[in-house]
Design a protein around this nucleic acid. Structure first.
Length: 751
DNA sequence: TCTTCATAGTTTTTT
DNA sequence: ACTATGAAGA
């Protein structure tokens, strides 16, 4: 234990023992990055730095938990307990809980998750009566988020000609108003979204010198993991906090930067040199994780990226086996192949030695099915998380109303669920009044007499009884513990009986989820180690920041892991399968536009490859079931970028396990354009000459007469887009112009 | 006001 | 295939 430094190589040691100053560690995949961070923190503690003066920021909750655990093992649990370790969001939400009043927020502010933000944006677009084709919720939401992450306020936006011009061009002239209203309505709801947690932290540090002073002094030593994935706002916060002591250590790998789409900014690495000219750079290049073949394959791939920091990852590990590339006929075959291969390798390995990685969550289905058929245990990460399920969000919304009744999204979810006869029209009226007076809906309905709302007396009584219900919950929030109150709310709100009465399989599972949440709360209450009663607000503090990966169950230990590549960052497995190596899927067709997007996809593949310790299997399928159709797919360009010396190819296309008739498989055209096949069991739509229509649509020309099931006869007046995204503008008699996506539109070509 | 049915749009990755 | 929305019926 005292010789913990011996576990490190020379370069790692150097990075660990330098206590003061600015340090950047560029760490290749599998080079012991986490080890350096944990040992470094342990080293700081050994040298008398007090744990509450150390701030370590990680990318996921899981990573922070793991890091704390590892530090425990070196220095003992007591010391590690008071370290500030967590994700940016969790650490800063903790700080904001005690400082938010300075910014005008209540200390019990709600954290809006993505669904809440989206719903609020939708509501604003509706209120402003904007065209939701032009103002797409997702696009607007992304834009708001990216502005916030660059510290551009609504005012800042209005003074930014370039940004204004972008929106004018896109005919979204009202964007600024939406953004402004979004912020306003979050604020009056006492709510912060994910981005606000960072934004308000930065505001706190810039506008309140005493707060800045306090936290600069608290955080004598700052360490940041996955630095390549930090965004501009995170950069600003770190810089601010470190400005006093300048003891900052960032660890990252530019080759593994895979969150640019979310605003991660690779410039942060470059800026580091400028901000801390005396910084020390350490490069960890020895890989301890993978075989030579795997390391070399990964290197040969990433070489194709132009933008990168020079480094040479190598390993002393043995050669290992070749990387296997498999071609299969269908995605189901791919699933079977993976399951069979795992089965073959299983002899003395455990299920948890295997991971199946994919680009999109939707791909998990076929894999799940084959694993299930083989009777193999597996666990899936991602997809719809527990906390995002409707029934859980519904119940949590009641809890949120207890903590902070101004929470508009929670109110909208609970006010008429279970149904109380308070419909959309009433809610709309309330919303208008609340917006006019710049107060929350709760304030309107709890003093309904004060506001002249045109609802009939029956509705008014219903509203009053809702208020009484919530108030009765609130009055118990300080005395009852979280579990008791939660159980009480579940029953008195009517949710319990409503869900119990639904005996459909989905209904039963919803009911079980509620019970699972409650039993989780029971555990929380029992195991609470604070001084006071574990009340509901204590439980609710971080719920919005939790994800499924955070509470891994014991029974999930020995299972095959299925997850997206993004989710696999930081993990390692002896055997890794990367499936769906196909053009349009990986690289994703959304990234086809720019060089930088493509480079990010390539880095993503690099991450996937470097998860493997012993063996790596890459597979692609000729036909994939997607959007209710079979789609032809070509092998990913990334496969041909790999150094072929380390790769061996297998072909499973002629396998007789295929469920599709041979004609269809070999009907694949030589040209590259996608040809689709009707899916089996695709009953209703394909009653007419569905097939013929589809393939002919690629030959559409301007002026062509077409027939649409609903709109009747029309004329093509414009065509745009490529391949699967080809869009046609059609003029229909008596209806006008319609934009139709060819892949969905049921158009018939007329002579 | 609530429920049901039909249809239109959608799928990249996540704290 | 799935979800979200909107219109029509109860």
């Amino acid at each position: 234990m005292s010789n913990y430094l011996q576990d490190l190589n020379t370069e790692q040691q150097k990075a660990v023992i330098q206590i003061n100053g600015a340090i950047m560690v560029i760490a290749g995949a599998g080079s012991g990055k986490t080890r350096v961070l944990t040992y470094k923190i342990a080293h700081l503690l050994k040298n008398g730095i007090r744990p509450f003066n150390i701030l370590a920021l990680t990318f996921t909750n899981k990573a922070s938990k793991e890091m704390r655990g590892r530090i425990d093992k070196i220095v003992g649990g007591e010391l590690s307990k008071s370290l500030w370790i967590g994700t940016f969001h969790s650490v800063f939400s903790r700080i904001l809980r005690s400082e938010s009043e300075k910014l005008g927020y209540p200390t019990n502010f709600t954290i809006y998750d993505t669904a809440d933000s989206k719903s609020l944006t939708r509501s604003i677009i509706k209120d402003l009566q904007l065209d939701k084709e032009v103002y797409k919720v997702g696009t607007i939401q992304n834009r708001i988020s990216s502005l916030k992450n660059n510290f551009i306020t609504p005012q800042g936006y209005n003074n930014h000609p370039e940004l204004l011009q972008t929106d004018t061009k896109a005919k979204r002239t009202e964007f600024g108003r939406i953004y402004h209203l979004y912020q306003q309505r979050c604020f009056k709801s006492g709510a912060m979204d994910f981005d606000d947690l960072l934004l308000n932290t930065y505001k706190l540090l810039t506008e309140f010198p005493e707060a800045l002073y306090k936290y600069q002094n608290t955080f004598e030593y700052i360490l940041v993991d996955e630095y390549q994935d930090t965004n501009h706002l995170q950069y600003l916060i770190i810089k601010k906090l470190a400005a006093r002591n300048e003891n900052i250590c960032v660890v990252g790998d530019d080759a593994q930067s895979i969150y640019a789409f979310r605003g991660a900014n690779i410039k942060n690495i470059l800026n580091f040199k400028i901000d801390y000219p005396d910084y020390k750079l350490y490069k960890l290049e020895q890989n301890y994780r993978s075989t030579k073949n795997i390391v070399k394959t990964a290197n040969s791939l990433i070489k194709h990226n132009e933008k990168q920091i020079e480094k040479d990852v190598w390993t002393e590990n043995k050669e290992g086996e070749s990387i296997i590339i498999c071609e299969t006929a269908t995605d189901n075959d791919e699933g079977k192949l993976v399951a069979n291969t795992i089965n073959g390798l299983l002899s003395d390995e455990n299920y948890n030695d295997f991971a199946i990685l994919y680009r999109t969550n939707a791909q998990s289905r076929a894999l799940e099915e084959s694993l299930r058929k083989m009777g193999m245990p597996y666990k899936i990460y991602g997809g719809l998380s527990f906390y995002q399920r409707k029934e859980i969000k519904d119940l949590l919304s009641y809890f949120r109303m207890v903590i902070n009744p101004k929470d508009e999204e929670a109110l909208k979810r609970t006010i008429n669920y279970p149904a109380r006869g308070i419909g959309a029209t009433t809610i709309q009226k309330l919303l208008i009044t609340s917006n006019e007076n710049n107060i929350s809906i709760w304030e309107v309905i709890s003093e309904i007499e004060k506001y002249n709302i045109k609802v009939n007396s029956g509705t008014k009584i219903k509203l009053e009884s809702y208020v009484t219900l919530i108030k009765s919950f609130r009055s118990q929030s300080e005395e009852k513990d979280a579990y008791d109150l939660a159980e009480h709310i579940t029953k008195s709100s009517g949710l319990y009986s409503l869900l119990k009465s639904d005996t459909s399989p989905e209904g039963v599972s919803r009911f079980e989820n509620i019970q699972e949440l409650l039993s989780g709360m029971q555990d929380f209450t029992k195991n609470y180690d604070g001084d006071s009663t574990p009340i509901l607000s204590e439980f609710m503090k971080d719920v919005a920041l939790l994800t499924d990966t955070d509470n891994e169950k014991k029974e999930d230990f020995n299972k095959v892991t299925l997850m997206t590549i993004h989710a696999s960052k930081g993990l390692e497995f002896p055997y890794v399968f990367v499936v769906g190596m196909e053009e349009g899927l990986f690289p994703s067709m959304m990234s086809g536009n720019s060089q930088s997007d493509l480079e990010e996809e390539r880095r993503l593949f690099y991450v996937a490859i470097t998860r493997a310790e012993k063996r790596l299997f890459l597979s692609h399928s000729n036909i994939r079931f997607k959007w209710g159709q079979y789609i032809d797919s070509d092998a990913s360009r990334f496969l041909s970028e790999l150094d072929q010396r380390y790769v061996s190819k297998k072909n499973f296309v002629k396998s007789n396990t295929t469920e599709i008739s041979p004609q269809k498989i070999f009907a694949k055209t030589k040209n590259n354009y996608k040809k689709t096949y009707p899916a089996k069991g695709f009953k209703k739509i394909s009653n007419t000459n569905h097939n013929i229509q589809r393939s002919d649509l690629t030959k559409l020309k301007n002026g062509q007469l077409v027939k649409h099931e609903k709109f009747g006869t029309g004329k093509i007046i414009n065509l745009e887009g490529e391949g699967g995204n080809k869009k046609a503008t059609v003029f229909f008699n008596g209806i006008g112009n319609k934009q139709l996506l060819l892949k969905f539109a049921k158009l018939e070509i007329l002579k």
